[in-house]
Each structure stands twice: as structure tokens, then as C-alpha cells.
């Protein structure tokens, strides 16, 4: 007969240096849950397939895409991500469309499913800080998403390399890395939003639907609403340029409330180096410009506000869910 009392006290003098930090323990568990789960496999399959599709259209249209005297001629490789023949959206557009789905898919049941399974009170009665759980869940999902997007991005590059036979230049490579980073930030925003809903709503289905509702609102209805509001205010063709610029600024400001607008502006600038401004330009400003691509530093400067906006949105929804979760009373089921 084993006496656990003796064994357990014997183990008390254990060497604690080998023990993993609880944060890492939770993170590893969450990551393995994601990676082994059907949900992640399905999401990956959807995104990988659309990737293949857009890569195929991009490759078959490469011939038409290259024109003589194109200012972006030296950025041949980047076209892999941006061109399409009109039947199939480009890789860039796909990410802006499917990224939210990925973020929502991995976050909508983060907290409420733990609660429904009755594991939340058990885990939180272990000697860990309460925020470890929510932070570790966020970091784990983000790590999985980052790994997936990096793999996808590099795969597209590799496939392009093999089929085109032209290696990307250093600048193109750096731009692509920034594009992947930007996609990760964008998905992180949706991930945090869905974690927020998972703290707010008891039922995972309600949380998922609410997150999808927000996503649909921003992609479909918000632009319509903005147009409806702005239609009566539209200046006539005879209006002063000053008015026109002001109107255009207003329209852009309203549109930039949408995270997907921020993302698409930022990716466009990064992947199409000839884009030199995201707002209206007057003829006066254009006079004397040499058509040519912007250097990487300038492109990054141009998208800085968009990136900051996305990060701010991510942090805001994280802070709200953090506060709600920390103040919540943890009742068993």
C-alpha cells in the first residue's frame, strides 16, 4: 500500500527551478488545443484554399500585369499579392475579408466555454493570477494565428519564386514581412473583440454571432450608412476646391472608423509602392512630381496612423474585456 502522505511530503523538497511558469503552462495548453482542434483545421483549410486560388489567378495574370514604363516595374514580385483578373480577389483582399473570421473563430468561446464546462472556477482556484488566464488565451491564439499567417505568406512567396523564377528584392521582402505583421495586428483586433464578447456573453453562440454581426456591420452596412449621410452634403462640380477637399476629408474620416478600411489602406500602401497619399491631392501638390515608387521608409510613415489606429482598437477591446473579467465573480457554473 502506497502512502501518499509520505511521498507528497518527500516531494516538497523538490527543485522548483525546473518548474514552468503557470503562464507558459496555460499558453501551451491553449495552443495545443487550437492546433489539435477541428475549428483551426477548418479555418486554415479555408484560408489556404483561397490563398491557392488567388495565387493561381495572380500567376496566370502576371503577363498582362507588367507594362512598360510602369513605376512599379521594379516591384514585380509584390504583384503576386495584389493583382487579380476580376474574377477572383487578390491575396490582400482575401486576408482583409477572412482575417476577421479567423480572429473571431479562435476567440469567441475563450472564457464562456471554460465557464460552461465548469473548469473556470477550478482553474482560478489554483495559485495563479486571474489575468494569466485571459492573457495566456490571447497570447496563445495570437501565436497560432501569427504562425499560420507567416507560413502562408512565405508559402506564397516561395510558390511565386518557383513559378516566376525571379527572386524578390530585399525591399520587396521587407515590405512583405510588414504586410504579414500588419495582417497579424488586424486579426488580433478581431480576436480581442471576440474575446470581449466571450467575457460578456454566457453562450458561445451568442458571442460568435455578436462578433460576426460587428464584422458584417463594418464590411457591409457601415459604408452604406456613410454614403447615405454624405449624399446630401456632396458639393456640386462647381464648388470650390477647398470645399471638395473638406468633403473628401470628412468622407475618409468617417470611413476610417472601420478597421477594415484602415487595414486595406495600410496594405495597399505597403504592397503598391506607387501609392503616395491616402487622402485627396490637389493638382498643385501633384505638379512637378516624378511618377515613381515611394521608398520603404516613406510608405511606412504614410501608414503609421492606420497601424496606430488598429493597435489602439485592439488595446481598447482588450482592456474592456480585462476589466470585466477581473471584476467578475467566479461562480461555479
Amino acid at each position: 500500500m502506497n502512502n501518499p502522505a509520505v511521498t507528497l511530503t518527500g516531494l516538497n523538497n523538490r527543485n522548483r527551478s525546473r518548474a514552468k511558469h503557470p503562464f507558459r503552462v496555460i499558453m501551451e495548453k491553449e495552443m495545443s488545443d487550437h492546433l489539435g482542434g477541428w475549428r483551426f483545421i477548418i479555418l486554415t483549410a479555408i484560408i489556404a484554399l483561397t490563398c491557392l486560388g488567388s495565387l493561381y489567378t495572380a500567376l496566370s495574370n502576371m503577363g498582362q500585369a507588367v507594362k512598360p514604363n510602369d513605376p512599379e516595374g521594379s516591384f514585380f514580385f509584390l504583384k503576386l499579392f495584389t493583382i487579380s483578373d476580376g474574377t477572383m480577389p487578390s491575396f490582400m483582399v482575401f486576408i482583409s475579408f477572412l482575417g476577421p473570421l479567423l480572429g473571431i473563430g479562435l476567440g469567441f468561446d475563450a472564457i464562456n466555454s471554460e465557464h460552461n464546462r465548469g473548469t473556470l472556477s477550478r482553474i482560478l482556484s489554483q495559485p495563479i493570477h486571474r489575468d494569466y488566464l485571459i492573457n495566456a488565451k490571447f497570447v496563445a491564439a495570437l501565436a497560432v494565428i501569427s504562425a499560420m499567417l507567416i507560413v502562408l505568406g512565405l508559402t506564397v512567396m516561395g510558390a511565386g519564386l518557383v513559378s516566376l523564377g525571379i527572386p524578390p528584392t530585399a525591399e520587396e521582402f521587407v515590405r512583405m514581412i510588414f504586410f504579414i505583421l500588419l495582417s497579424i495586428i488586424y486579426v488580433a483586433f478581431w480576436l480581442n473583440l471576440s474575446i470581449l464578447f466571450s467575457v460578456l456573453f454566457r453562450q458561445p453562440a451568442t458571442a460568435a454571432l455578436s462578433a460576426i454581426a460587428v464584422w458584417l456591420f463594418f464590411t457591409v452596412f457601415y459604408p452604406l450608412i456613410v454614403n447615405m449621410i454624405l449624399k446630401p452634403m456632396e458639393p456640386s462640380a462647381a464648388a470650390s476646391p477647398y470645399h471638395m477637399v473638406a468633403f473628401e476629408q470628412l468622407r475618409l474620416t468617417l470611413m476610417r472608423v472601420m478597421p477594415n478600411q484602415l487595414f486595406s489602406e495600410a496594405t495597399t500602401t505597403l504592397l503598391m509602392p506607387s501609392v503616395r497619399s491616402l487622402g485627396p491631392l490637389t493638382m498643385e501638390q501633384m505638379i512637378g512630381t516624378v511618377p515613381g515608387p515611394l521608398p520603404l521608409g516613406q510608405s511606412l510613415l504614410l501608414v503609421w496612423p492606420q497601424v496606430t489606429g488598429l493597435i489602439a482598437g485592439t488595446i481598447i477591446s482588450f482592456v474592456i474585456s480585462y476589466i470585466l473579467f477581473m471584476r467578475r465573480e467566479i461562480r461555479p457554473r
Binding site: 527543485n15 514552468k20 503557470p22 503552462v25 495548453k29 464546462r117 482553474i123 489554483q126 461555479p332 457554473r333
Partner: peptide
């Protein structure tokens, strides 16, 4: 109403708890 991670074995559930308690 104690809950466990249903897709993990009883042993894995216990090891997870132990690791959260800083046991190697």
C-alpha cells in the same frame, strides 16, 4: 459542479493542475 477538460485524460487534467501549481 467540478468540470474537467473533456478531451484530455484524467491524468493529463491532473498534470495540468499540478503544473499550474508550479510542480515540474
Amino acid at each position: 459542479e467540478v468540470g474537467f477538460y473533456d478531451d484530455m485524460s484524467g491524468l493529463r487534467n491532473l498534470i495540468y493542475t499540478a503544473c499550474l501549481n508550479g510542480i515540474p
